[in-house]
Every structure is written in C-alpha cells, then in structure tokens.
Simulated scan of single mutants.
Amino acid sequence: MTHDVVVVGEPLLEFAAAEPLTDAVTFTLGFSGDALNAAVAAAAAGARTALLTRLGTDELSDRLVAFLAARGVDTSLVRRVGGQTGGYVLGADPAGVRGFAYLRAGSAATTLEPSDLDPDVLSSAKALLFSGITAGLSPSCADTVRAAARLVRGSGGHVVYDPNYRPRLTTAERAAALFAELAPDLTVALPSAPADTAALFGCTDAVEAAARVHRLGVPYAVVTRGADGLRVSDRGAGLDLPVVPAPVLVDATGAGDCFAGTLTARLALGDTLLDASRLASAAASLALGGRGGTGLIPTLTQTRTHLTTTPTP
C-alpha cells in the first residue's frame, strides 16, 4: 500500500474522567497520544494514513490496534513487541492548562529504532508527520525520526514537524538543537506560540518565530496562537488567519494534534499551505467539542462545512 501520510510516534492508552483529577474516581478507557490523534485526524481528512510505532502484546494493545483500524488508519507498520503500551490519566479541563499523569516509562514505543523503518514504504509516502514528543522519548526514537525524515524528504515528500515542546521529556536547549538539526529535512514546521517558540527561539512573536524557522532552512511555517489564530508563512511571505470559533468547548486535549494531522493530510493530497491551514484550523475547532484526544475527530465534510458556515472574528 502506498501511503499519503505516515505518522511516527507513540500511541497511548487514555484513562479519562469527566471531572478534574482532584475529584475524579471513575475513568473511561480511550486511546490517544499525539501520534495516534494526528493519524486518526489525517485519515478523517481523506488521506491514506499509517501509524508507525511499537506496541505491547497485551489485550489493551489489541484494542488499540482495532481502534486505529476502525478509524481508517493502516496498522501494517505497527510492530508488536514485548513490554507495555504507555498510558496517561487525565481529568476534564476545557482550558487545556492541566498536566497529564503519564504511565509511559519504558513503554514499547520508546524502543523504536531505525531498523523499524521500511525504506520502500517511507520513500513512497507523500508526507511524514512526527513531533518533538516522539524525538524526546529516547535516543533511538530520535534516531528513527531523523532517518525517516531523510527518506521522505529525499524522495520529494513533505516532512511536517510539530515541536510540541514538553519540559518533562527534554530541555529547551536540547529541543532547540534538535529543531536546528532536523530543519534541513523539513518542509513544514508547526510551532505553537508562546509555548514552543519561547523554548526553541526565545521569542513569543509569531512573525519573528516564522522568520527563525525560515532562517534554519524550513520553507513553510505555521505558527499556532490558540485563540489568536495562525501565522502562515511561505518562505517569509506571511499571512495571519483568524481562529475558527469552536461551536462547543469541552476539552482542549488533542486539538493541536488534530490540526497537525489534518494539515499534513491536505498537503499530501495537493492542497496549498493556506488552504490546508484553514481546514486544519476548522478541524481543531470542532475537536474541542470532544473529551479526550480522539473524543471528536471531524470528517472532512464536517470540517469543510464548519469552515464555510462559521463567521470568523
């Protein structure tokens, strides 16, 4: 199978509560993680999508694989190995400011290595998506995304990088150094402002952040600014896009991953950067109405309808 999008990263078991963690006693099993969320969003946006990862061989991992397949994500690149599949616990938080309680140390996905890559599969993919979370899981994970980026970029595909800076996984200095190292093999970078841009570039201004991305050699930059919208920049020619208002606000978990997956899918399918960014913004807006990372992943039809019928500020 030739893929439009290959996502590399760690899917997680999600134990979600309808109340804040300070009060919650009942949790619902779900499946999430930035890579899984983005892969499901890319598939929903119309792309033939595969998730490349390692999972354990237990029953919950079986359910996770079935979850992916039911949502149109190809699981042929999922390796089943010994060890656990990682997880996290979260409570309801519409503002998206709480921390997660992670249960991922030593998970199967942290053992990803370059030998897990099939050069033929990667070279034929139209786009690759991965994040700073994946690269920060372990040295072998970092080596894997470096190798994958070279394969896809070398064959002319898009390589999309969401820095997704997490101080629990890395330092600002290491995250900035990794971005600079990856930059020559990237076509699109998706830093958030101020969280990513402050760590990577020491700035919070979206225009300056996009300029820093270009100076490192990345042709496209899309700087997400939450309620303040996007800065879309093509080799320095930039445009600000307003936020697409969310019809319902339940939980911010996974909205950024939905954005990244949708944008990557639409670029792989031939949309312009501007059109892909608009659709991704609308998809992320709808995703805010679901609980957990994949509580609401809109279809392409739903996203397009939301974009064309919702007044923007």
Score class of each variant (00 low, 15 high):
A260K: 02
D196V: 02
V188Y: 02
A42Q: 05
A227D: 13
G46Q: 09
G82M: 11
T305N: 14
E10M: 09
A142I: 01
D93I: 15
P194W: 01
L307R: 04
K126Y: 02
G236S: 11
L200R: 07
A105E: 15
A195P: 03
V65G: 01
S115T: 15
G83R: 03
A180E: 14
G256W: 03
T111K: 11
G46V: 08
A172H: 05
R215A: 15
S277P: 07
D116L: 08
V73T: 01
D23S: 12
A260G: 03
G290V: 05
A50Y: 02
D185G: 04
E181M: 08
A125I: 04
V97T: 15
T2I: 13
A246I: 10
S233D: 15
A135C: 10
V145N: 09
P184L: 10
A177K: 14
V248E: 13
D23N: 12
T171W: 13
S155Y: 06
V5E: 00
A135I: 12
A199Y: 04
A255N: 08
V248F: 07
A43T: 07
G295W: 05
G154Q: 10
L239R: 12
Q302F: 01
T305K: 13
T26E: 14
R166C: 13
T170A: 14
G290Q: 06
S107M: 04
T22C: 08
D185S: 15
T272I: 00
P311F: 05
L60N: 11
A252Q: 13
T134A: 05
P163Y: 13
E181G: 07
T253P: 06
V159Y: 00
R98G: 13
T299S: 15
A172S: 15
E113D: 14
S277N: 01
D251T: 11
L307S: 07
V7N: 00
A282I: 07
C203T: 15
A38S: 10
G229A: 07
T272Q: 00
H3A: 13
T53W: 02
G56E: 11
A287G: 06
S285W: 00
G82F: 08
D4S: 12
S107I: 01
G86I: 11
E181L: 08
G157M: 02
V40T: 06
L129C: 04
S192L: 01
T110A: 15
A282Y: 03
T110N: 12
D240H: 11
L307C: 05
R225C: 13
A39C: 00
T272D: 06
P245Y: 03
D234E: 14
G292R: 13
D205N: 07
D58V: 13
P167E: 12
L307W: 05
S277Y: 00
Y161W: 08
A211E: 14
V8S: 03
Y102P: 10
P94D: 04
V188A: 08
D143W: 07
A199Q: 10
A44K: 04
D257M: 03
L129E: 08
I133V: 14
M1G: 11
K126W: 01
D58H: 11
S123C: 10
V232P: 02
G154T: 13
P184M: 08
T308H: 14
A109Q: 14
G270T: 02
L269M: 12
A127M: 03
T310R: 13
Y88G: 08
E113A: 15
L117A: 07
V7T: 01
V250P: 07
A177T: 11
